[in-house]
Design a protein around this nucleic acid. Structure first.
Length: 274
DNA sequence: TACATATGATCAT
DNA sequence: TGATCCTATGTAA
């Protein structure tokens, strides 16, 4: 389920499995036939993720741009793939020993290097991308200072920071003790620093684990990560009315940026983070 | 069988 | 702000 950690995972895996190879491309569903025909039999050079966007670069300076949206899914087969369901398989990619199917993406299209650059330029710093950590952090500061919207809304704006979604925004704010309603520009510099480093750590952990786990084991009575139960992985997301895992207070919820957000009114009191 | 919902984003108004 | 697109899943009926 796709926030930045999932996308970066796909990028790594696809790069490893297909880059440098001639790839057979198809569109069983028919909705990407033209693009698939164009790339069929070409060599895939690199797979790169930026926020929730994937860029597959092919010989001949063309890029396959994929965005999973809320519903998109990859299926990955090392050997003998089943026949692709033609109702929903937008794209099939087959290399030497790997076949990948894509269903339900928001975006699956061919773009040129200029378009790729223009998409990237609209994305904020991605904690999961290589590059100067200091530079990305200072960009995050600048982006927040420009917005009067609540920090809870700003974190979902991919121009502010790329890769965070509805789960991570709630969890990162909880872990930093910041009130989601606080206007972005009013965050103390030190709170912005903490928010960035928490987000980065959580996203990285998500890539590593292949899923979102934000609780410290001790807060759910576990000794190590592997002991954490499925329904105990998060502090606040989706926990309306349940007790806070840190203080026992009741988790609250509201709508913010057209999505539901949850927080602990005691751990993240009004104005906290200013 | 139907409906609500979901870890996303864009476009029109 | 609301409508729309995309698909799978769990729950209600």
């Amino acid at each position: 389920m796709p926030e930045g950690h999932t996308i970066h995972r796909h990028a790594r895996r696809h790069q490893k499995a297909l880059a440098g190879q001639t790839v057979a491309m198809g569109s069983p569903q028919g909705r990407f036939s033209d693009g698939a025909r164009r790339l069929d039999g070409r060599v895939l050079e690199t797979v790169d993720a930026h926020g929730k966007h994937l860029f597959y670069r092919w010989e001949g300076a063309e890029t396959l741009h994929i965005h999973l949206g809320l519903f998109g899914k990859f299926r990955f087969y090392r050997t003998s793939p089943p026949p692709p369901p033609s109702v929903n398989t937008r794209l099939s990619m087959a290399g030497e020993d790997t076949t990948i199917y894509l269903a339900g993406p928001t975006i699956c299209r061919l773009i040129d290097p200029a378009e790729e650059e223009s998409i990237r330029s609209r994305l904020g710093p991605d904690p999961l991308r290589n590059g100067s950590a200091a530079q990305k952090l200072s960009q995050f500061h600048v982006n927040l200072l420009r917005r009067r919207i609540p920090i809870g809304a700003a974190l979902l704006d991919q121009r502010v920071v790329a890769g965070i979604g509805n789960v991570y925004r709630a969890e990162a704010l909880f872990r930093t003790g910041i009130d989601p309603h606080l206007p972005a520009r009013e965050l103390a510099s030190e709170a912005v620093d903490r928010l960035w480093s928490e987000s980065t750590a959580l996203l990285r952990a998500g890539v590593k684990a292949g899923g979102i786990i934000t609780v410290d084991p001790a807060d759910v009575g576990a000794r190590r990560r592997s002991e954490i139960e499925r329904d105990e992985r998060l502090y606040v997301y989706g926990r309306h009315g349940e007790p806070c895992r840190r203080c026992g207070n009741t988790i609250a919820t509201t709508e913010m940026a057209s999505r539901r957000i949850w927080w602990c009114p005691a751990c993240q009191p009004i104005g906290a983070g200013a």
